[in-house]
Amino acid sequence: MAKPKIYKSKLGMLIEGNSIELLELDKEVAELKGKVNLIITSPPFPLNNKKQYGNEKGEEYLNWFIKLAPIFSDLLTEDGSLVIEIGNAWEPERPVQSLLHLECLFGLVKNPKSDLRLIQEFICYNPSKLPSPAQWVTVNRLRTVDSYTHVWWLAKNDFPKADNGKVLRPYSKSMQQLLKKQKYNAGKRPSEHHISEKGFLTDHGGSISHNFFEMEQIDGNREVRLPHSVLSFSNTASNDYFLTTCRKKKVVPHPARMSGGLVNFFTNFLTDEGDLVMDPFSGSNTTGYCAEKLKRKWVSFEVKHDYVKQAIIRFSEPDLNSPLTKLKA
């Protein structure tokens, strides 16, 4: 097997090549086993139509996905986590939602060659997603818009490294007032919960985050309280450095970029500075970019050279001051 091309920044490296083949066969890459604190990725979705970023379909996708379980399990530290974002699938030429994504999840946690379990599921809602599946939403108008993705948090044991105190949301205005007054109506509620007199009077710096990510505001009259650590840049943001530079260079950005807000949330939630973060299907390498900014070491893989070039654009951001440089053979 030919040696892969490697690009390095101050804290990480981007490897150009097929991640699964390299993780199984390349001796240097194999040294990562047992050292990765967080694998966070958005693998190619199980779509019915082929996309330019590459994706399997149907049974082939399921078999490919299940084979990832032992590879990822071997890479993780004992307290490490695996976070996967995946969209819904639909049956070919039918207005029927497929169970393929669920079969993929079951395949991960039931694979006898690994020891993964689902810690928690998150939902990522993005109202800017184009209407899909188009045939059944905009043409025949039989279904509603598929506007969310699943985010699965898995691990090798029941207690992976995690601290929700690092991803707190700002307090609501009513909670801020309560903390200021240091008094509220305690006692028994209709739900039969008993609220103590001082249970809500301690200022913890914010409220515990929810497992629902609102990538854009649903209700314009309601305040959205994102965790302090989340950089809120969605795939529709047109004013950040990466997209601006792509436009100038007439480069078409990767069509399925992972949200930097998601990456930041889980990186802060599940790792510490200096930990190792990996993305085996990195595209334009949002994961590596976020890890670099958050002072984590990182390793990313991308098989398509056009997307590697986009990652180089992302890392050329002057404020980052950590360009991706190709290592000489």
Rank of each mutant, 00 (worst) to 15 (best):
Pro131His: 11
Gly54Pro: 08
Glu317Cys: 07
Ser282Leu: 02
Pro227Thr: 06
Gly34Phe: 15
Met13Ser: 14
Lys326Ile: 14
Lys248Cys: 12
Thr138Ser: 12
Ser259Ala: 07
Pro190Arg: 11
Gln120Leu: 04
Leu105Met: 06
Ser234Thr: 12
Ile123Tyr: 04
Leu82Arg: 02
Ala186Thr: 01
Glu31Val: 00
His150Asp: 10
Lys161Pro: 10
His194Phe: 09
Ile195Phe: 03
Ala186Gly: 01
Pro133Trp: 00
Leu270Tyr: 14
Gly54Met: 02
Ser174Thr: 07
Met278Leu: 13
Lys293His: 10
Asp26Leu: 01
Gly206Ser: 07
Val308Gln: 04
Asp272Glu: 15
Asn268Glu: 11
Tyr171Gly: 01
Gly34Arg: 15
Gln97Trp: 03
Met215Glu: 14
Thr244Glu: 14
Glu223His: 09
Leu105Ser: 02
Asp203Gln: 08
Ser9Pro: 15
Pro133Cys: 00
Gln135Lys: 09
Phe315Lys: 02
Leu179His: 09
Tyr307Gly: 00
Cys246Lys: 01
Lys27Cys: 03
Leu231Phe: 03
Gly220Met: 01
His305Trp: 01
Glu59Ala: 13
Leu270Cys: 14
Val252Asn: 11
Thr267Arg: 10
Lys249Cys: 14
Ile39Pro: 12
Lys8Val: 15
Gln217Trp: 05
Tyr125Leu: 02
Lys198Cys: 03
Trp152Ser: 07
Tyr171Val: 00
Ser316Lys: 01
Leu75Asp: 11
Ile119Gly: 14
Asn264Trp: 02
Asn88Thr: 10
Asn48Lys: 00
Glu85Thr: 12
Pro323Lys: 08
Ser259Gln: 10
Leu76Pro: 12
Thr77Lys: 15
Leu243Gly: 08
Glu78Asp: 15
Trp64Val: 05
Lys8Ser: 15
Tyr7Gly: 10
Ser191Tyr: 09
Arg296Ile: 07
Thr149Pro: 15
Asp240Lys: 07
Leu327Ile: 13
Gln182Asn: 03
Gly199Ser: 04
Asn239Pro: 13
Asn63Leu: 07
Ser114Tyr: 07
Gln182Cys: 01
Gln177Tyr: 15
Pro170Ser: 04
Arg94Ser: 06
Pro160Ser: 14
Phe266Cys: 13
Gly17Asn: 04
Thr77Leu: 14
Ser9Met: 14
Phe106Lys: 03
Pro170Glu: 11
Ile86Phe: 00
Leu276Asp: 13
Pro43Trp: 04
Lys295Gln: 13
Cys290Gly: 05
Gln217Tyr: 04
Phe106Ser: 04
Glu21Asp: 14
Pro190Asp: 03
Val224Gln: 06
Pro190Glu: 06
Asp146His: 07
Ser191Asn: 15
Pro92Ala: 01
Asp158Glu: 12
Arg141His: 07
Asn111Cys: 03
Asp158Trp: 05
Lys309Ser: 04
Met215Val: 11
Asp219Gly: 02
Glu16Cys: 02
Trp153Met: 08
Ser114Val: 05
Cys124Asn: 12
Ser73Cys: 13
Asp306Met: 02
Ala155Leu: 08
Phe266Leu: 08
Glu223Pro: 10
Asn126Gly: 04
Asn157Thr: 13
Phe213Ile: 08
Arg94Lys: 14
Glu216Ala: 00
Leu168Ser: 11
Asn235Gln: 10
Asp240His: 13
His193Asn: 06
Lys304His: 01
Thr77Val: 12
Ser232Phe: 01
Glu85Ser: 09
Ala2Lys: 11
Asp306Arg: 05
Leu178Pro: 06
